[in-house]
Nucleic acid binder design. Structure first.
Length: 567
RNA sequence: GCGCCUGUAGCUCAGGGGAUAGAGCACCUGCCUUCUAAGCAGGGAGUCGCAGGUUCGAUUCCUGCCAGGCGCGCCA
């Protein structure tokens, strides 16, 4: 597994270091006050005429010392040493930006890195040593996955892949809520459907799961077993329906996620924790630490000590002294940390945001540091068709399921659309747009760039082009068109982008990057004919096209969308 | 009442203390006898919800307000 800092990262760091040295030199000479300390952040300016890299550090310093940014920038430049660097020229621009113009040597180096690393290009070691457990989807095993689950699945899977690419060790985990009274209700609901399927006039239990899928399950049980299940003893029968329903629905969810191209590393059962007695242990630990008290016959946790807005019941006052759901969840998160992960990320739905504080409080109560748990809330999804809001499925009474969504628009469009928006924004998912097989659908824009490149190589082969490819075979100086330089810069930025985006937990920015990359390629394709008369130029452009294709493929892999060879 | 999310172009949304606020779709004008036109080039289109504050500079940060969405159990 190859990992190294990106070429772009090295260049930025080199320039930042030189700027830092210039600042301290200016301080030594008394041109800038001594006590200043500042971080030099290198960015990519919005327009090519503003250089390859820029920093606003002079303006930041200017604020500190009440001097205008441009004159501070002038001071920095006077002390700046750019010997043995790719920097050709430094400009002061606007309110005091330092704009750096570089020769193309760093791009050549960056491109050969892409060539060498291929499918693993983008990998860095920024997050080496991080052991992250990323829990997402974790839908209740009481029904089909819904569209918010699909959104969380897209976000979680992409985030996990990006964190891995940035050097972290990541485990994708699905928590199965296979204990608690909802599972009893599920079993009873199935039993009622089974009896109804046998012709009995049998009512659904209170709070029953009313979906069609339980009727289907019941029907297949009748076909398989006839009325024989009614002969079982009460306990045995109850247990059978419960575990049968759980197993079937879980299998179904697994199948849906598999169709989505998502594989979890672990499926963690709540029941297994409960069987180990982990629940009682959590309550006991909190009691020993003096963080619990009794009131109204219940046991409470002083979560307000840890920033929660009210204390929470741990053990109910009912006759069975049942634990509330916070207890198994605390036991579960404690277990995650005991498995050696140093950081936990949960992706939860919008209905759980009120739950975050008490969970964090509980973990702190158990003695874990603040911040080991990070919770990302994925917001609601509304399905629309053009202007019309889609609420119900054709079958009536149920919200449209993830299966139905995938059937309608396919995995590629679904994942792309979910990742286009920032996770915390409310999403209107336009089914009509997503299923369109045309240029109106943004997913094709990126895929098309990949397919177009594949097509160039097919054509090259057909035409019998003889070309030697690779960084040592081509004349890099032939790639000097503005569109070629722009394309190379985006390609060079990929590893840093992956790291920055993973760190910010904003996978939607990867979509933006891919759109920009596709745009840069399409512009290059239009301006620069790849397969031309000049063999040296053809070889150089084929090389660049190949590199663009590598990055497109790597980025598409990160979001779990296919990279077609033709469209 | 409290908490969370959102308010940016006709629509769906990015962005973010600074340099002329962006994309996709829609609309208008050009571009296919040559590597896929699912493309490219260009154009019109915005008081960045409203009002204050901090700042040399706010669409971005802070406060208040308005609007929309979601949540607030000894349910999970």
């Amino acid at each position: 597994m190859q990992s190294s800092p990106s070429v772009l990262g090295e260049v930025k760091k080199d320039i930042a270091t030189r700027v830092m040295r210039a600042i301290s030199k200016a301080q030594d000479r008394g041109d800038l006050p001594k006590e200043l300390s500042v971080e030099v952040k290198m960015e990519t300016p919005p327009r090519p005429e503003q250089g390859d890299f820029a920093t606003g550090v002079a303006m930041v310093l200017g604020r500190e010392i009440k001097t205008d940014g441009r004159s501070v920038a002038g001071t920095i430049i006077r002390h700046l040493n750019i010997d043995d660097s790719p920097v050709l020229r430094v400009d002061i621009a606007g309110p005091g930006f330092l704009n750096f113009f570089l020769d193309a040597s760093w791009l050549e180096k960056a491109m050969s890195r892409v060539w060498a690393e291929g499918p693993s290009y983008g990998r860095t070691d920024y997050l080496n040593g991080e052991k992250i457990l990323l829990e997402f989807v974790s839908a209740n095993p009481t029904g089909p996955l819904n569209v918010v689950n699909a959104r969380a699945a897209a976000v979680g899977d992409c985030l996990a892949s990006m964190l891995e690419m940035a050097g972290a060790q990541v485990s994708r985990e699905f928590y199965i809520n296979d204990a608690g009274n909802q599972t009893d209700v599920l079993g009873d609901s199935l039993e009622a459907r089974y009896r109804q399927a046998l012709g009995q006039d049998f009512p659904l239990p209170e709070n029953a799961y009313k979906g069609e899928y339980l009727k289907d399950l019941a029907q297949s049980l009748v076909v398989e077993k006839g009325p024989s299940l009614l002969d079982l003893a009460d306990d045995e029968r109850h247990e059978f329906f419960k575990s049968y329903a759980l197993q079937k629905i879980l299998d179904w969810q697994k199948k849906t996620l598999q169709d989505y191209g998502l594989t979890f590393d672990t499926w963690f059962s709540e029941k297994s924790l409960r069987d180990m007695g982990a629940h009682n242990l959590v309550v006991e630990l909190l009691r020993i630490k003096g963080l619990t008290y009794e009131k109204d016959g219940a046991i409470w946790f002083k979560s307000t000590d840890f920033g929660d807005d009210k204390d929470r019941v741990l053990v109910k006052s009912d006759e069975h002294a049942t634990a509330t759901y916070i207890v198994p969840d605390l036991a579960y998160h404690k277990n995650k940390l005991e498995r050696g992960f140093n950081h936990l990320i949960d992706i939860l739905g919008p209905d759980h945001h009120g739950y975050v504080n008490r969970l964090a409080a509980g973990l702190m109560g158990l003695g874990y540091p603040k911040g080991v748990l990070e919770v990302l809330i994925v917001q609601v999804v509304r399905l629309v068709k053009g202007k019309e809001l889609v609420k119900m499925s054709k079958r009536g009474g149920e919200f449209i399921s993830m299966d139905e969504l995938l059937e309608e628009v396919g995995k590629d469009a679904a994942r792309f659309f979910f990742l286009m928006r920032s996770p915390e924004s409310h999403l209107d998912f336009d089914i009509d747009l997503a299923r369109l097989q045309s240029n109106e659908n943004p997913v094709f824009y990126v895929q098309y760039a990949h397919a177009r490149i594949a097509s160039i190589f097919r054509q090259a082969k057909e035409d019998g082009f003889k070309f030697a490819m690779g960084p040592n075979e081509i004349d890099f100086s032939l790639l000097r068109d503005a569109s070629e330089l722009a394309l190379m810069k985006i390609i060079a930025a990929f590893p840093e982008e992956v790291y920055e985006i993973a760190k910010a937990r904003e996978p939607n920015r990867l979509i933006k990057f891919m759109m920009d990359l596709a745009t840069a390629f399409h512009a290059f394709y239009t301006r620069c004919r790849v397969l031309g008369e000049d063999p040296a130029l053809t070889a150089a452009r084929l090389y660049l096209a190949k590199l663009a294709q590598i990055v497109l493929a790597n980025a598409l892999r990160l979001i779990g969308v296919s990279a077609p060879e033709s469209m």
